[in-house]
Design a protein around this nucleic acid. Sequence first.
DNA 1: TTATTTTTTTTATTTAATAAAATAATTAGT
DNA 2: ACTAATTATTTTATTAAATAAAAAAAATAA
Lengths: 417, 417
Amino acid sequence: MLTQHFSGRNLNRVKAHNLQAILMSLLHENQISRAGLAKRTSLSSATVTNLANELLAQGIITEIKPQATEIERKRAVGRPRRMLRLVPNARYALGVHIGVGLFRIALTNLHADIIDNRIVEFERATPAAEVLEKIALEIEDLLLEMAIDRSRILGIGVGASGLVNHDQGINVIAPRLGWNNIYIQAELQARLGFPVRVDNNVRAMAIAEAFFGAGRGAGVLAFVYGRIGVGAGFVVNGQVFRGSGAGAGEIGHTIVVPQGGQECRCGQNGCLETLVTEPVIIRRSVELAQQHPESLLAKYMENESAAAPSIETVFAAARDGDELTLKMLDDQICYLGIALANLVNVLNPGMILLGGVFAQGDDLVRPIASKVMRETAFSGLGDDVIIEPTSFGWRAGVVGAAALALMDFFYQTTETV
Amino acid sequence: MLTQHFSGRNLNRVKAHNLQAILMSLLHENQISRAGLAKRTSLSSATVTNLANELLAQGIITEIKPQATEIERKRAVGRPRRMLRLVPNARYALGVHIGVGLFRIALTNLHADIIDNRIVEFERATPAAEVLEKIALEIEDLLLEMAIDRSRILGIGVGASGLVNHDQGINVIAPRLGWNNIYIQAELQARLGFPVRVDNNVRAMAIAEAFFGAGRGAGVLAFVYGRIGVGAGFVVNGQVFRGSGAGAGEIGHTIVVPQGGQECRCGQNGCLETLVTEPVIIRRSVELAQQHPESLLAKYMENESAAAPSIETVFAAARDGDELTLKMLDDQICYLGIALANLVNVLNPGMILLGGVFAQGDDLVRPIASKVMRETAFSGLGDDVIIEPTSFGWRAGVVGAAALALMDFFYQTTETV
DNA sequence: TTATTTTTTTTATTTAATAAAATAATTAGT
DNA sequence: ACTAATTATTTTATTAAATAAAAAAAATAA
């Protein structure tokens, strides 16, 4: 039985905490006066002055010259406040998203805005060490090209698929890459000299949304990502929720059809992943097109040159009113709705964000999933849940990864079980 | 959109935090030296001495006289350590568990050991105000009888069923009592003068287990309680998880049979509650006994004088080897296993504790639920989960309630979304 | 008896927050 | 134009609490 370690909070931690409280406020408010910061953080104005001076000296924040919003000046009796603002490009972070057969690298600023990004493909059989070496080379090259001072790089965040040991930065299992116990953190840290953070990629996306995206201010945020599988990441009140063994969020293997469901690659029957992933929907579409060669769906597929049709073709047919496709999507997506309802019943999130295929087909997917979720969730629990697509689109992966590095800067308290 | 409030941690909070770190260590360790506390809390020995002196002056801790464990004295080169111990009866807490038609009250010490307790029945139609008045009277009476100094009572914890607004101490909805928006905290606080904490009863049980019971040291703890319904409570690293609207843990209305499931009182079909609650199992047993009058189950039921058979009768038949009953339990409980697997996939808890009927029939329920859970959970996620019955038995309700009050003493940081 | 070891306490120092006072920059009223 | 009022920010002096370093205490080992 693991014994908890109740660390007594030493004084220096207090300052770090207060600094981070100020930074987080600046991140949320865009511009805010010292007085406003004092109110928001419940620190004294003197403390805010002191800490703000430190941040100003470091160039992380700046004073806005002319009082930007001239309109609300009418309320201005008394000494006018001097607004402070984060300097987004004062520091940078690097995000690495490792996908199947490709990785993306992005350089972002403190707002998690992408400054530059690259996509590199690799053979699926490439050994992990080689992929990491490629990543390191690409990062070196990117930094050189952008002429970024290395001292302004906060660190590197890596979003990996599968099971990730966050504390040690190890990709424990990545089934689709055949990776086992890859020491990503140690490797990249040694190679590049920056602090490295590794986490599950969907969890990283959840973090990005919670701090820099649509999830800001949501008490409990669930990010649900669908592509080849379905995964979820949770952020609770600014704390990442990883579970006891970093395995939280395997929503894709939640059983939604306990009897007679299709067999899943995990060995079980009736997992959510057997119903609503990209490959499953494409497979169902191919079947439908074969059964109904006269349908719009079949026509759209014929026009496609690729061997396998893309999910966009399916969505296009649905958007253009193909009843068959719409019906099929309805039949499949309703299970996502049930899974979300189960999630809502258990976690009671304030917001659910959808990413991956679910965001690509947002106009088709969300109405169904949302409706079923609300109908199915217990006693109005689903009514107040905000459901939206990810605010980062295809960037979710790299931005999420970069967010891992940014978090150490903004909010040390990201550690949880 | 609710804006988060990043409270800057002021200095006095540091001391409170460190005191609580010390108290928590004392709670976990039973006896520990100042040096040990310094190591465990990573505070300096000077700080520990100071804080320990304050606690000694308040009578909350004491020095153990003769070095209790004489055996391990051999390692004693150097000045011998002087062990400190919590004085369990230095302070007390009151726990109130409000059930359907009855409430329980318990006086506990700092270890959450019950000093005295009472059960009071009331008509189900009694107005809430009247029930609260009865509770207050009973508490006054208990304190008088036990001759407890009011200044040593830390506070009152109340475990209520249904939806509870913890911050305001309001029982928002208690369907089975027909209560709506009952201001339990305000009412009892005004009436009795003690601080009052109110929370959902299952959540309270989870807290009790996490701090005083089998769940100590578990990173993510899930407490699953079955009686008339099925609910769950979660404690994550010593923080209660309540969800955005205090609605987390409604596992009973998780859909486990999406098509063709029985209708639930919540309006949905196929909820877990339609399969594994006490009334459902009794109803299934009655049906079975009617169909098979020669069975052991039927005989046991005949012997019972009560109108409806008790769950204990059903369990007795199963324990005595009645195949019909065993088969029925297998068929029903396997759905609990599926629900637990879904829970494991989503939350990845380190420990699941079962309470209520599940604990009553632990020898029958747990093997099935545990087996199905482990078979069904994704890729070995279930393998490391410890499943056990509640360590408090029927006391779980009141001990849980008392734990709500004790938490303010031991661990202020119990607040989460 | 002395050296060593470990624990606990004391003393002096340091850090950081903060209350209170001072200063600054404005509007409103006369 | 001048004064009062108001609000924001900075400065000064104070305070709380942690902690490093030193001292003291209480034992064993040689």
